[in-house]
Write a protein that binds this DNA or RNA. Sequence first.
DNA 1: TGTACATCAGTGAACGCGCGTTCACTGATGTAC
DNA 2: TGTACATCAGTGAACGCGCGTTCACTGATGTAC
Lengths: 236, 236
Amino acid sequence: MAAVTTTARARARAEITTEIKAAARRQVAESGAASLSLRAVARELGMVSSNVYRYFASRDDLLTALIIDAYDAIGSAAEEEAAVGRRTFEQRWIGLARAIRGWALDHPHDYALVYGSPVPGYRAPTDTVSPATRVTLVALRLLADAVRSGEIRADAVVPMPRPLHADLAGIRAGGLASANLSDEVLARGLQAWTQLFGTISFEMFGHLQNVIHDYDAFFDHQMRRAARTIAGREGT
Amino acid sequence: MAAVTTTARARARAEITTEIKAAARRQVAESGAASLSLRAVARELGMVSSNVYRYFASRDDLLTALIIDAYDAIGSAAEEEAAVGRRTFEQRWIGLARAIRGWALDHPHDYALVYGSPVPGYRAPTDTVSPATRVTLVALRLLADAVRSGEIRADAVVPMPRPLHADLAGIRAGGLASANLSDEVLARGLQAWTQLFGTISFEMFGHLQNVIHDYDAFFDHQMRRAARTIAGREGT
DNA sequence: TGTACATCAGTGAACGCGCGTTCACTGATGTAC
DNA sequence: TGTACATCAGTGAACGCGCGTTCACTGATGTAC
């Protein structure tokens, strides 16, 4: 009757915590994170605003919970995609990129919450670091696999300055998946990674309006190019 | 005594308009665009809040003015850089990239204002389109020059779907500088362009914290890689 | 198993704050004759 | 050049709103004996 049995109170607490987060997410989806309001959340759930404080110590705490959830959602979307087997590196990379973009299109405000400009006055605590890493680990694993299979060839190397070598060595040491990735491959990976999020952000934040009309075609093609840049072969 | 002579009233109006924008910019720099407040601006200038309405019809109008100013500032920073002569394509590209990043580092909140997530509840009017284009035109001119000089060789072509060709044709038709740019070169340019802003946004919005420490070295190197991707030569 | 006490969810009122915008007014600057 | 009227910058009060957070309280759920 300790860890296993849950009291009615504990169950109710868990459910209501979830409901609060869901209402908050709905509110963020409607009008953005900056205008997230505890009172509005309470109103939507038909409870008095002061009661929300039984579940979250402050508005910032609630925001943090949303950010963590968002990172986790992207992470698991990416992991799920990565689990699909028997594909070439290029197919897997495009699949990963599409999964991330698809999530962003489905949750534009959540995307803005984590990859857009920081919410003013809000300082992210360190709790958000590890969920933020999940999606990156998927990418690193993908690179590692493709190096192992020979699909990435890094014989052509762009020389880089010493301090950058040091930073890349840090990535290699930190990420479990990245132990066999050379500096050249990591640098290419970062090139593609920033291109991926740059492309999604441009689309989401309206910088391609009246320029690109078929976003799907544009994105797929650009990600195909990115895959080739990583693999080290350009053109056909 | 018509268009040339300016009355004291008109001069005062111009000056105070500038002062209001400056105060607003200072406020945005301190706490972000979402919390820009007409009343706070008025307070800082020692005037009564209702008087700001003699200069800007609403808070959104003031925000629009700031956005236009920000785009113009990036545009002229880029144009200034581009005016430096006698350099290779790679040098010019890196110079342009550095100019944009430098402006972003000097004006983090202005960068967030235009390239971060949109301000909630604010809808950008069409007035912002043409200033937003300035910096892009600089890049297109740079590409065109490098094609002319033979520094960009587009013999290796990545095949792309028809709708993307149509969109790229639109860019060619719209931008005066881009008339001689092939679809392949435009696609490469977009690849580098999204990489550029993706890299700056990652840095500005904290997604490289504890990963990259020497941001200057990282950025320069990544932009060197981008230049090579555009030019069509990888590795050394 | 039954009772006494402790814990905790939820209430409702209040504090103190800032916001965008409107309006009727005063007084200085500009313009037409 | 001098006067009469029109324009416009700036004032101060007000409307109506929403916010985060605290606090003393009630009543239901959980726990120890």
